[in-house]
């Protein structure tokens, strides 16, 4: 390689390096800031409900309202059904999404008591797969601090929580594996999954 080519290459790479920050659309950066603020506000409200006064039923109702407002329940439900979203009939899909809403609420509100005294700090935010990834540290009395990441994406112009990644394990990915495994074990029959979810809902009422 001649000296000139090297210099040209160097100049070119410097130009590219200089241009990259300019090329980054500013809305993306603004998006990260607003997504982080959204998560912080959601987290503060969740913590206030969990640690605040009120009966178990009152707290569950408040949490349900928060989840409906800030979590993309339908999007997560569709993700968890994986390729079977396209294979399900519209009616199956509607029933499934309704049942999934119950699954999500039960898994959040079912262990309310364990989260007494919970606190969190926002550590950093970065763009990632499927939206902004906000990294937080969750503290609970008598528990080691846990690193929990939240995936935030825009749904109809509103920021929504799409996934929770606790110590490297993604909630929606794990749930998707569960459903995919179950459907595969039942001859790829979506009705079997819906039946099992219905049975689960009957056995664990309260949400």
């Amino acid at each position: 390689m001649s000296a000139t080519t090297r210099r040209t290459l160097l100049a070119a790479s410097l130009a590219v390096a200089a241009a990259v920050p300019l090329a980054l659309p500013t809305p993306a950066l603004a998006g990260i800031a607003s997504d982080t603020a959204f998560l912080k506000s959601m987290g503060d409200q969740l913590v206030a409900v969990v640690n605040g006064p009120g009966t178990q039923a009152e707290k569950q109702a408040k949490l349900q309202a928060l989840v409906d407002k800030g979590v993309d329940v339908e999007g997560i439900a569709r993700f968890c059904l994986g390729r079977f979203v396209r294979l399900a009939t519209p009616q199956q899909l509607a029933t499934y999404i309704k049942l999934f809403h119950g699954v999500l609420m039960r898994s959040i509100t079912g262990h309310l008591g364990e989260y007494k005294g919970v606190g969190f700090t926002v550590d950093k935010s970065a763009p990632g797969d499927g939206g902004t990834i906000v990294t937080t540290t969750i503290t609970r009395p008598n528990n080691a601090p846990a690193k929990v990441q939240w995936v935030i994406d825009q749904v109809d112009g509103q920021p929504k929580i799409e996934d929770v990644i606790a110590e490297g394990t993604s909630m929606r990915l794990t749930q998707q594996s569960d459903y995919a495994g179950f459907i595969a074990q039942n001859n790829n029959n979506i009705a079997a999954l819906i039946g099992a979810m219905q049975k689960q809902a009957e056995n664990q009422p309260g949400a």
Binding site: E167, T169, L173, D178, G181, F182, A184, L193, Q204
Partner: peptide, 24 residues
């Protein structure tokens, strides 16, 4: 109690957890 297919759920959890340890 919650998983419909605990085998598949544990398989996924194990792999994700392992990958997180490797990434770290």
């Amino acid at each position: 109690a919650q998983a419909l297919d605990p085998y598949a759920t544990l398989r996924s959890l194990y792999r994700q957890h392992r990958q997180a340890e490797i990434d770290a």
